[in-house]
Design a protein around this nucleic acid. Structure first.
Lengths: 341, 341
DNA sequence: TAATACAATGCAAACGTTTGTATTATTAAA
DNA sequence: TTTAATAATACAAACGTTTGCATTGTATTA
């Protein structure tokens, strides 16, 4: 069934020249005579030659593959980042190997180890909420494999570049916006408490309330604990069904939470934005479709992907001896106003 | 900067044994004495040995990587399929290399060629709307690389396994459902005409109308031509803004079209489902969040991914001499009723 | 016409594994 | 003890490239 691949040797034999010459000819190396090169190209085509990437990689020590680890697929933010990575990477002749850590530290570690086997030239990683220790990442870096981290970074990792947004600032400004609209009972819907981004978004919420002398009311605060799409809905419905006071605004830490909140509130008979304003976080398209459309903090996801890829690829091309400056890159967010506020 | 990797040779030298023995010891090959094996494992650990996947692949001729080509990232259906693939693949020790053809035949071909260089053991592909000729796929198969196709297959490819749903049947039953609800002016929102799945879904629509003696009215039919999320919205808004008759139902060929239709209709003052019913296609979660929630044809995307991966991996494990039976697998859809009808 | 330069090509090692076969060491049987 | 059997290990080729260095061929100069 499986056909034997044509290799350099086959071309060499047919033309009665050496493998080295064939290799160089295909490389357009000026050391081989134009006429020879032509002949090589012709027979290579005729024979259907296709270089063996694996052999090339073994010889060169480069695979031109970037390993990407995200906590989950079913979060549009991560997919959008991947799209950004793919865009930049392809332009620079890299391919991407994506895997999901499924919100599990163990999976994240396993993935990292599998990448350590030399399959990838560098790694882009967004740590899970479970990730408390970073030695598994440090280990990889110590082996000389460049790593770029994005989103949800609990701890600065020495030698890695970080790309983040300022979650606390962003949520602070969103909540302050609500306060300035004279909202007094602002509900907060966050995600799992263990996740740094949610912690920071919560901090921003608290800070805005404090600044404007609004008392924090625990009954208005929900930290969703679901890791799956299916349970988030129930959790948020529960929350609003039982809430003892009527909120006049909701600040949600993701677009999805925001949409689910709007859905639940509408079903409970609230009018948006008359009775209650809602702000989401992310701005990944769905907020624009919902009726009413949702005000969001726009996070530059695609751009984040591009940036992350750019930084990694830059690092891959650095001269080995130059000890590179590792950086923390902060991308800007902005509040996009729509009908829900 | 870059540390030299520890290799078998280093372990061998340290223990004064041969590379072959080290290799076999790590493989737990019974040909090496238990005590030797122990020593090998110990020093391997102590030295931080990590096998070189590339070298392994070159030697074994297997990479344990599956190449996946999808037309676009920003279509939840494809991501859900990828998630299914990832799930099944990981369980069977395969990794996935994803790339997007960006709705372009040329990109699809390029990706395929890049995979042909021996990087992947097999390929999962969903052809673009531009893909008319299938020789690039046939070529790959002829080289002995297994290919499984899913969604949007215009032409049966010899030697490839196909996984599809019966788009015409599914849309027929959805439209018939509307007819039975006494809907007479049923609008159709499809995608680019060149895409087989949209052609089939349109056929189902026509067939249902015909069966129930409802005249086809071109003014009720929209074939969206946008390939980008951003333009779809405008196209659908335009359509409903200018529509000369009031539809009493809308059958949309994707969830996104359905949601955009609902949004536009609501903004135009229609009541859903009182004035107009809406059915979407896909059922990827968003329909449940929208208010009112959207009735959908549920397409088993995750399962499709799993199935596709299963079929490919089965093929990869087939004995080479056995000429395998290539199949066309049809997955079931069902109509999920919600508030929009 | 011999010496010299340089263009074109070839040889062989290297990349890090795996694995068939050969070799050596050890044990059991005669 | 020597022989036969078997267990343990070693050798070397193979996977398909790339590349530094050596070699051959050709043209230029004196």
């Amino acid at each position: 069934m499986k056909k034997r691949r044509v290799k350099l040797e086959d071309i060499a034999r047919k033309l009665n020249i050496s493998i080295a010459t064939v290799s160089r000819a295909l490389d357009k190396n000026p050391r081989v005579k134009p006429s020879t090169r032509e002949k090589v190209f012709e027979t290579a085509n005729a024979m259907g030659y296709m270089p063996n990437q694996i052999a090339k990689s073994l010889s060169s020590g480069k695979t031109n593959i970037i390993g990407v680890i995200i906590p989950r697929y079913d979060e549009p933010f991560f997919i959008e980042v991947c799209r950004g990575i793919d865009h930049y990477a392809r332009e620079h002749h890299y391919k991407i190997l994506i895997s999901s850590s499924r919100n599990s530290f163990e999976f994240e570690r396993e993935n990292l180890i599998s990448y350590e086997k030399g399959l990838v030239d560098g790694i882009i990683l967004s740590p899970t909420h479970e990730t408390e220790t970073f030695i598994h990442i440090q280990n990889i870096i110590n082996k000389g494999i460049p790593v770029v981290l994005f989103d949800n970074i609990k701890q600065k990792v020495n030698g890695a570049t970080h790309v983040i947004i300022e979650d606390d600032k962003a949520s602070f400004s969103a909540v302050e916006f609500l306060v300035k609209k004279r909202k007094k009972t602002i509900a907060f819907i966050g995600g799992i408490k263990e996740k740094k981004v949610f912690q920071d978004r919560f901090k921003g919420y608290l800070k805005a309330l404090k600044k404007h002398n609004i008392a924090v009311d625990d009954r208005l605060i929900l930290h969703c604990s679901s890791l799956d799409r299916e349970y988030e809905d129930a959790e948020i419905q529960n929350f609003f069904n039982r809430i003892p006071i009527q909120p006049d605004a909701v600040f949600a830490c993701t677009d999805n939470y925001g949409l689910l909140a709007m859905k639940t509130l509408l079903n409970l008979g609230y009018k948006i934005p008359e009775d209650v304003s809602v702000i989401g976080f992310g701005d990944l398209g769905l907020g624009q479709i919902f009726v009413p459309s949702m005000t969001c903090i726009a996070q530059p996801s695609f751009e984040m992907g591009q940036k992350v890829a750019e930084l990694l690829i830059d690092q891959l091309h650095e001269i080995d001896d130059v000890v590179p400056q590792k950086k923390v890159i902060k991308l800007d967010t902005k509040l996009v106003l729509r009908d829900s506020t």
